[in-house]
């Protein structure tokens, strides 16, 4: 009875399947990895299209394992997130000490003879309405600088986690045929992305349609590659990189991981540091 609905088991060769689904493999040139990895295999990711709702897999791209298969250090990611939320936070909580509270200069009652406890001021911290000892003072900036390579490793760890958890997708570009928000919502739904998606492009001037389509949807956000950060990647469920953004991010991170003049970056943070 059910035999007709259950598909037959077949042996599927992954390579054969991947090749058959390629739209036009010859048109898309493979990626050349800078600093070719010696000890690790490159990671692979599908290059997908973005101009139709249904997904078309265009090619397989190789990803550098030092960026996309780095050690997923959750503690480093935590350090980054903590730093991102703290460095621009200024606490305005403020309390007054016993000398800043108005009044309290006069001895409230004589030292002796009344049978009451001795007191010198009605603004002593023992009194209601008195000053506060070691209370918070305003403004209290929480700015600090995370070490440069902690920031770099935070990015590689987060990208690696996103890739490992199938939350990283690479698309050709951000061109869509319409500026209707429903198009992007349908696309995201059918491809099982999201609900929240971060689209990262190479530059900060995005195509008009995607800008208009995602403007009203608060859980779809656009970001240039230079703004990529750990907090935003984790805040969104899915990270979608354009191919150009992927190239830029990978080359920037590899440059910082491999350069030999890292001393200026690792020195103590100064304003206008080179």
């Amino acid at each position: 009875m059910f035999s007709c609905t259950i598909p037959k088991l077949r042996i599927i060769f992954p390579t054969a399947r991947s090749l058959s689904s390629l739209a036009s493999p010859s048109q898309i040139e493979p990626r050349q990895l800078a600093f070719p990895p010696k000890y690790q295999q490159p990671r692979q990711v599908w290059l997908e299209n973005f101009d139709t709702i249904e997904e078309k897999k265009l090619a397989i791209l190789e990803l550098h394992p030092e960026v996309f298969a780095a050690n997923p250090r959750v503690d480093i990611i935590h350090d980054n997130v903590r730093w991102q939320s703290l460095y621009r936070y200024v606490s305005y909580a403020h309390t007054k000490s016993r000398f800043e509270v108005r009044g309290g200069g006069r001895k409230p009652w004589p030292q002796k003879g009344l049978g009451r406890a001795r007191h010198g001021s009605i603004r002593s911290p023992l009194f209601r309405g008195g000053g506060v000892i070691h209370g918070p003072k305003s403004p209290n900036p929480h700015f600090y600088m995370l070490p440069f390579y902690t920031r770099i490793h935070g990015l590689t760890a987060t990208l690696s986690i996103k890739l490992a958890q199938d939350d990283l997708h690479v698309i050709t570009d951000l061109e869509i045929p319409t500026d209707d928000p429903n198009f992007v919502e349908e696309l995201v739904k059918s491809r099982k992305w999201g609900p929240s998606v971060l689209f990262v492009d190479e530059s900060d001037i995005m195509p008009r349609n995607i800008t208009a389509a995602t403007d009203s949807v608060k859980h779809f956000n656009l970001m240039p590659a230079y703004g990529l950060n750990v907090y935003s990647m984790l805040k969104h469920d899915t990270l979608v990189l354009t191919r150009a953004a992927l190239d830029l991010i990978e080359s920037k991170l590899l440059t910082h991981l491999h350069k030999n003049n890292s001393v200026p970056n690792t020195q103590k943070y100064k304003l206008n540091q080179v």
Binding site: A69, N71, P72, D79, I161, A164, L234, K235, D237
Partner: peptide, 23 residues
């Protein structure tokens, strides 16, 4: 260790702002 950790992450809940911890 990195390979193993990444393999494990495939079957673990999504790493997000809510489940980060310092060492």
């Amino acid at each position: 260790t990195a390979e193993k950790a990444l393999q494990m992450l495939k079957f673990l809940p999504r790493v997000c702002l809510a489940n980060l911890k310092p060492s």
